[in-house]
Design a protein around this nucleic acid. Structure first.
Lengths: 213, 213
DNA sequence: TTTTGTGAACCTATTCACAGCG
DNA sequence: CGCTGTGAATAGGTTCACAAAA
């Protein structure tokens, strides 16, 4: 199998967003050039990204919007309604539990976990928060594949180990620590502090280059 | 001035996190090799990253932890206590307003904004939510340099325009839309949907390569 | 013609490897 | 010695440019 750059995957996700929008607008067909214009991106990049997965376009015409959208959904595995758990019902966990954008994308938040008796048994957006001690059992029973980690930094590694042991394949980690996990588990870090610090650097006046656009 | 890769800045921010930790532990000195081990990274990369900003290390000894930490803080502009506004007091905005990690890093959340009369005047973690109509005035008076955008996707572009017009230099955008801003304004996007979709791709079994570790 | 898909060329980032310093 | 700082080499990702298809 050909090696796919990670950025390609991120961009597919972005294309998907625009295709969703275009298909609601009733646009039937779009060329890589027009799509690139919307995205402030390079047409070749779009074609190259898509070409990793096969030829979805028609020469001279472009891409069928709804078809391409469907293909990208398939590639990203969004068709099967991935089952997700949120671990850590602090402010952020609660906010994410309430976020309605997940279902639209084919993600179902099927369980919430915490270790505090103040949280366990409470309902958040109609879902009851469960004791993290039961994580492994629920993950197996509910066929949960992904976990969103919103626990304090101090607890993150320990909780990550539990999550991994329960059989989860991918973790979206909000704790500002590096998680040590086996190679077969994928971790994506969302680190607000890092993002803010990068922006701060920019504000300082170093004019580091932006992508051509 | 030499051109600095954007990834270098992200990594600097990561190094900072570990240096903070090491200095609390009382570690006085660290070599690029030891630091790299902690980070699961490459020693040359660390040295190269740092070398963009000057030679902070001592040949044969390594780097002085607290000195290097101070230098990175200076590079990232964390010394001056950057002033930040949060715009959009939905679930996520509220969670971020309550987040205590910002102050530690040298960021002060000095103002909260929303456009809804249900939110304006309410207090969140001791700070009153202000009418977004007054944004420009407050930004100038409070010397706000950065904004965290936590508004719905539909409103994001319009709000971003207001934020830019008010003189803010950098935006941390949580709305899943591409923001059109002038070149002198820096936008960082935190897109949960994109992150989840990328992870979903991985769960699908494509074993795309991870960084050497 | 228009536009895709793709090898080639280019550009950027990472890693190597070693001179030079302490 | 051990380790940094950095030019050189390598790897990786992006853009170009064009043949082939509609």
């Amino acid at each position: 199998m050909k090696k796919i750059p990670e950025n390609t995957i991120k961009r597919l996700s972005l294309y998907y967003r625009y295709l969703h929008f275009l298909s609601r607008q009733g646009t039937g067909t779009i060329s890589s050039r027009s799509l690139a214009q919307l995205l402030e991106a390079n047409p070749s990049q779009i074609r190259k990204d898509l070409s990793y997965f096969g030829g979805f376009g028609k020469t001279g015409t472009g891409y069928n919007v709804s078809e391409l959208k469907k293909q990208i959904a398939r590639i990203l595995g969004l068709e099967q309604g991935r089952r997700v758990a949120i671990v850590g019902m602090g402010n952020l966990g609660m906010a994410l539990a309430a976020y309605k954008g997940f279902e639209v994308l084919g993600f179902s938040v099927v369980a919430l976990f915490d270790d505090s008796s103040r949280k366990i048994g409470k309902k958040y957006r109609g879902k009851v928060c469960l004791d993290i001690k039961g994580l492994a059992k629920i993950v197996r029973r509910e066929k949960i594949e992904m976990a969103i980690l919103t626990v304090p930094a101090e607890a993150a590694q320990e909780v990550a180990a539990m999550v991994v042991a329960s059989g989860v394949k991918a973790i979206l980690n909000f704790a500002p620590v590096h998680l040590n996990v086996p190679r077969h588990v994928r971790v994506s870090n969302v680190d607000l502090a890092t993002e803010l610090k990068s922006l701060s650097f920019f504000v300082s006046g170093y004019d580091y280059p932006r992508k051509k656009g």
